[in-house]
Design a binder for these strands. Structure first.
Lengths: 234, 234
DNA sequence: GCTCCTATTTAGGTATGCCTAAATGGCTGC
DNA sequence: GCAGCCATTTAGGCATACCTAAATAGGAGC
């Protein structure tokens, strides 16, 4: 008769659930190694934690040795709650406290664990229930649903096609400052004019400008666009 | 040659420093038992932590066995920083996010550890560098100085004297709601009309009202007043 | 089917910060 | 000056969440 551990929610648990959710979004199961990379900890530490998360009652994840982790409904619900916190905080810092969009991520990373439901409600209200954060990432609703949108990776856009920038990656402040300088931000219209060969840069016309902008292939992986319809302005 | 431990600042360290500061303010050295009571942990745990805080290099406190703890300059500086965080956050929650004054303490208790210097600066600016929080407690300045004020305990007021309420205790939400109902809050003028015998209630006239208000003796310990001059409105 | 290589797990260890129970110190009253 | 009491410290443990080093599993290529 083994003991049935209680489902304690520590900061570490939240970080794991968020990481697993984001990895799953990017495609498939979250492997031990990928979680370790994302959280910047040793793979061995991840194994131990995954075992614990799966053994909680009720469990946060389903875990099989050598096969990585998948969130349970409960785990996904919790992950979405944290992501909602994070993105609402980012929006609040940007719109109300004058943070630039390259400054919000780190601050939100700390605050997302500390705020109450009341705080969440108040800032959501103050912002008018936004659907996306300053980088264009969708904000999960209170009920756990996600604003659906029709978006593709920048690299999948066809030459000659127009699109609205829907979101950019929020991880690297330096990249965000570069995007700022270029005028690349969610809501901006662009047209893919030319695709250089050998995975070279994409030449795009931003917001009807006369000049073209070259976007390196690697950087384009950090940009998503809505190919046809209008998208939400953040 | 023993090792010289680094001065790590964890949440627990901050909580201890804040507790010791507040106990010292209320009079003299902070004893092991009083810290344990304030932090709601066992006295034995406090002993171990005090030893560690004193052994850090540079030390946060001076500690002698059986004689309690006193903050070093460095420790006091850190304590004031945390208290500034706490009181600015309380003010922000109250004035900007519509929290009532009995709701702010618990939220601030969590956020004070999570915010950056930038966040502190932004909310201080948004509030116009306030000198006191919603309960009337003075907010330490960035340089570590405290707004000086001329205040005494409510119980020390003389019969017939007028005064401005300068601050009330922030710990007990229920007490704060009671104060709200009575109209007891910082900045309100009162006059001590009568002091009941045997440590009975104080009868006061609040804000020029016609009716008198009875304030129990115990509750009066949670109220401070400025006997002569005007005080800062929070 | 076997060999490698890499991903993963196991084993054992560390630091933090809390706990309880038992030992000791310091002070007060007689 | 000593008895007794309360505050405090000591000793030994526990949970969390990380680490490194060594063992093992799975899958690709031959």
């Amino acid at each position: 008769m083994t003991t049935a551990p209680q489902p304690t929610v520590t900061e570490a648990v939240d970080d794991y659930l968020k990481a697993i959710f984001e990895l799953a979004e990017e495609g498939g199961r979250a492997s031990t190694a990928s979680i370790a990379r994302k959280l910047e900890i040793a793979p061995a530490s991840v194994t131990g934690m995954l075992r614990k998360l799966a053994e909680q009652d009720p469990p946060w994840i389903a875990y099989e040795k050598h096969r990585g982790a998948v969130l349970t409904d409960r785990g996904r619900q919790r992950a979405l709650e944290i992501i909602r916190h994070h993105r609402l905080i980012e929006s609040y810092l940007h719109h109300t406290l004058g943070y630039s969009w390259d400054e919000v991520h780190d601050e939100a990373e700390k605050l997302e664990h500390a705020i109450s439901e009341q705080f969440e409600e108040r800032i959501a209200e103050a912002l008018g229930d936004p659907q996306s954060d300053p980088h264009g990432h969708p904000i999960p609703r209170k009920d756990g649903s996600m604003p659906e949108r029709n978006e593709i990776g920048m690299l999948e856009l066809e030459v000659g096609a127009g699109a609205l920038i829907s979101r950019v990656s929020d991880r690297d402040p330096e990249l965000l400052r570069y995007f700022s300088r270029l005028g690349v931000r969610p809501g901006v219209r662009l047209e893919l004019v030319e695709r250089s060969p050998f995975d070279g840069p994409l030449l795009v016309r931003l917001d009807g400008a006369t000049e073209l902008t070259a976007l390196g292939n690697k950087i384009c992986r950090e940009i998503h666009v809505s190919p046809d319809g209008p998208t939400e302005e953040p």
